[in-house]
């Protein structure tokens, strides 16, 4: 079984997944029924998880499933079930288009800044290696990326890792403070 024949299936999977993701992402914002748009949001999350798998980031795909599909979507649906006047959807307002444009520009800018600004190889592979050796080292790294990811999270990025937990704690305390009986 050569690599080229399998890569056709992977190409096919990529296009199907991307198509589903984009279509359902459009559906999330275009559909009036809030519950259905939440369901399309879940389809979007699933598609993104599939794209992560194609990129070789299986761990991220698993976490995407567990956190976004399993937890965040359920919270969104809970919030929707507690809301009245579901059928009408959001009232439209005049800031809609400008806000959307600003958000899109901000997203594009940050994606551009991150992709260009990051030195993708330096953390994994020393720069003395040539192109082929770097590719080999990258393959070894991504073949079993979970231990390496764990090492990076608990050594180089430990501050960010812990800060995120504190952020979640703050959110939980804030929620409790909001609903507490006065």
């Amino acid at each position: 079984m050569s690599l080229t024949t399998e890569s056709f299936a992977i190409q096919l999977a990529f296009w199907v997944l991307s198509f589903c993701t984009v279509i359902s992402a459009i559906a999330v914002v275009q559909i009036q029924d809030l519950f259905r748009s939440a369901l399309f949001l879940i389809v979007t999350f699933l598609g993104i998880a599939g794209l992560f798998v194609l990129l070789g980031a299986e761990f991220l795909a698993g976490v995407q499933l567990m956190v976004y599909v399993g937890a965040i979507s359920v919270l969104i649906i809970f919030a929707i079930l507690m809301t009245r006047d579901l059928e009408e959807g959001n009232p439209s307002h005049s800031f809609r288009i400008p806000v959307a444009i600003v958000a899109i520009l901000f997203m594009l800018f940050s994606i551009y800044a991150i992709t260009v600004g990051t030195n993708w190889d330096s953390r994994l592979i020393s720069e003395t290696l040539n192109q082929e050796q770097q590719t080999e080292a990258g393959k070894i790294f991504f073949a079993d990326s979970i231990p390496n990811l764990a090492n990076l999270l608990l050594t180089d990025f430990v501050l960010a890792f812990e800060l995120v937990s504190v952020l979640l704690l703050a959110a939980a305390v804030g929620a409790l403070a909001l609903v507490r009986n006065r």
Partner: peptide, 17 residues
């Protein structure tokens, strides 16, 4: 799968939806 058990936990969480 490399992420076998994580896959299981992730996939089961679709049940609630």
């Amino acid at each position: 799968l490399n992420i076998g058990i994580l896959f299981i936990v992730g996939v089961t969480s679709v049940n609630s939806i």
